[in-house]
């Protein structure tokens, strides 16, 4: 199986949860990245791939764990995007642990209203 995730022993990569929807010629991508500050977030487009990486810059806690449910590690999410997305106009916003991306679609692929002339 080629798609088996290989895990680094030191740092785990977490696939964050996300929501994607389209509205009014834009695609909105919301990704959950609790604990990531602006400095730890990097978003780039590489060969039709949109890669969002979030690093937690806060240091690991030193205490003894009595309960441990949170998964610690860095976040990584990648999406394949096609020509319909205008990659120069991608906007990103980070607020309370949520990354909100706005991907505008190119005008050529958006539905267009055609006015009908009456003779």
């Amino acid at each position: 199986m080629s798609n088996v995730t290989t895990l680094e022993p030191q740092r785990r990569m977490i696939q964050p949860r996300c929501a994607i929807h389209e509205d009014e010629g834009k695609i909105f991508v919301d990704i959950e990245m609790p604990g990531v500050e602006k400095d730890g977030l990097s978003i780039h487009v590489e060969n039709q791939e949109l890669i969002i990486e979030g690093k937690r810059l806060t240091e690991a806690e030193t205490g003894r764990y009595l309960l441990r449910e949170r998964r610690l590690g860095d976040y990584r999410k990648s999406f394949t995007i096609d020509d319909t997305v205008d990659t120069d106009k991608i906007e990103a916003e980070l607020a309370s642990g949520m990354v909100k991306l706005t991907l505008p679609l190119k005008a050529a692929v958006q539905p267009r209203q055609i006015s009908i002339k009456q003779k």
Binding site: C18, A19, I20, H21, E22, D23, E24, F28, D30, K100
Partner: peptide, 14 residues
């Protein structure tokens, strides 16, 4: 996102 949130949802894990 968007104005009315009525658009097409592709995926929602949240």
């Amino acid at each position: 996102g968007g104005k009315n949130g009525k658009g097409h949802v592709y995926r929602n894990e949240t």
